[in-house]
Design a protein around this nucleic acid. Structure first.
Lengths: 191, 191
DNA sequence: AACAGACTATACCGACCGGTATAGTCCATT
DNA sequence: AATGGACTATACCGGTCGGTATAGTCTGTT
């Protein structure tokens, strides 16, 4: 039960942070939802900021792992894997619990530039882009970095769009655009 | 000086809301920055929420007007006008005061679904999309609505991306993608 | 049986939050 | 000169914020 409590508090905090927003979630609310006390929370997380950073770090790892699984599960070509990522996000966006991207939302809540929260958000998107760029390289695309950047824009834009107007199929629209961009990308000069 | 004070308070609040975030900006801070008192603020805006909504409404009108001007200033073809919008946002994103999209940020700060703040954000993006769709129709594009939606995704995504990693040219990358999407869109069946 | 450590219970702290009450100043119109 | 409305000054309200202090409970180990 000892190492479990820290994880349990973090899990509870994560859900509240994501569903209600970080600044709107007080420490007391987390403590009550987790069925514990402030003393225990502050034992494992010396400040609310630490808890917030832990939440973002956990979300980052979880999301990247999920992406990796989704990519490897697909036994198809790299190009099909790229498109499958849009399917995954389309599913994610359909969930009733969907409330936008936790990193974008956190970056919006913590406005000060170079804030640790913003840096955490930036790091996730940098890793996400790299993951897409690696796939694009495998797909034999010459301007892989540029294409990966564009796919990130489409996905981030669709997440934000779905957050505001729900169930408008923004992610499918993004995928349709992605298809065109991929098909129009230059192949590497073949031997 | 009478009608000026209301506008002055709103202007001050707008700047603080945008630069620091809405929830992080207290009424006292607005009052102090505007050089007035709480009594005057609450005379014109019966609650902070009203002030927030007024801020979003003002920002929406300002942004749409700026877009209209930019579009009409271009004496070029509708297709060139569509691309010119990306230039405008590229300039906007370069400003040292840039801190993301006020509507996306506000929607992220106010998590509760169907919150008035979220609705205001959604309304802006709906109008923005319509504006692009009208241009796409003029450009003789058959699937104008779909294309407009995709351009919105690219722009919103680039704004969010630039908010996290500054000065990476995300908006130029979005424009490059937009060119491809426009060139690959189906023309209306001509007579 | 005794000890240690994880965890709980609760009361408290100063600071700040959005919002209000009361009183007073300034100035233009009549 | 007097009235009235716009605006200021300031003190206050209850509530919540993040964070801490103190004390007690419960349980596994020796």
């Amino acid at each position: 039960m000892t190492r479990n409590l820290k994880e349990h508090i973090l899990q509870t905090a994560s859900e509240l942070f994501y569903s209600q927003g970080i600044k709107s979630t007080g420490v007391d609310a987390i403590v009550k939802a987790a069925g514990t006390t402030k003393m225990s929370l502050y034992k494992y997380f010396p400040s609310k900021d630490d808890l917030v950073l832990a939440h973002l770090s956990k979300s980052r790892a979880a999301m990247l792992a999920q992406l990796q699984i989704e990519i490897e599960a697909q036994a198809d070509t790299p190009k099909q894997k790229l498109l499958a990522i849009f399917d995954m996000f389309a599913k994610l966006v359909k969930s009733p619990d969907f409330r936008g991207c936790p990193f974008i939302n956190a970056a919006a809540e913590f406005a000060v530039e170079n804030n640790p929260v913003q840096q955490a958000a930036a790091e996730f998107y940098a890793e996400f882009r790299k993951l897409l760029a690696d796939l694009a390289v495998l797909a034999g695309i010459a301007n892989a970095e540029q294409l990966a950047g564009q796919l990130v824009l489409l996905i981030a834009g669709a997440i934000v769009d779905e957050q505001m107007h729900r169930h408008t199929g923004a992610m499918q629209n993004a995928q349709a655009a992605a298809k065109i961009l991929i098909d129009n990308s230059q192949p590497v000069a073949s031997s």
